[in-house]
């Protein structure tokens, strides 16, 4: 894991497409610019969709991790 602290962890487990991306777009504003959100999801599509969302919305995916069944996505609010 990189050198950053997590401002908030959000649980999107069990939600399929399009909800993880819809939720992060609504929740990203709940942290300050520069802060990092950890998202927990069980939707494998999110592995491709979060970077696509970040690119379009101007935010940053720092890294993704997978442990049994749960995907962790670390999102930095850029703007």
């Amino acid at each position: 894991m990189g050198d950053y602290s997590i401002a908030k962890t959000l649980d999107y487990k069990g939600l399929p497409c399009p909800m993880p991306v819809v939720k992060i777009s609504q929740d990203i504003g709940s942290v300050d610019v520069g802060e990092v959100i950890e998202v927990l999801t069980t939707d494998p599509g999110s592995l491709a969709d979060f970077p696509a969302w970040a690119k379009t919305s101007g935010n940053e995916i720092l890294e993704t991790q997978q442990d049994e069944g749960t995907i962790h996505i670390f999102v930095r609010r850029v703007k």
């Binding site: 497409c17 399009p18 991306v21 819809v22 969302w53 379009t56 919305s57 101007g58």
Partner: peptide
């Protein structure tokens, strides 16, 4: 509707 909400989420 999935496309529409997805677009909204992407800032499109």
């Amino acid at each position: 509707m999935i496309l529409a909400t997805g677009a909204g989420a992407m800032g499109i």
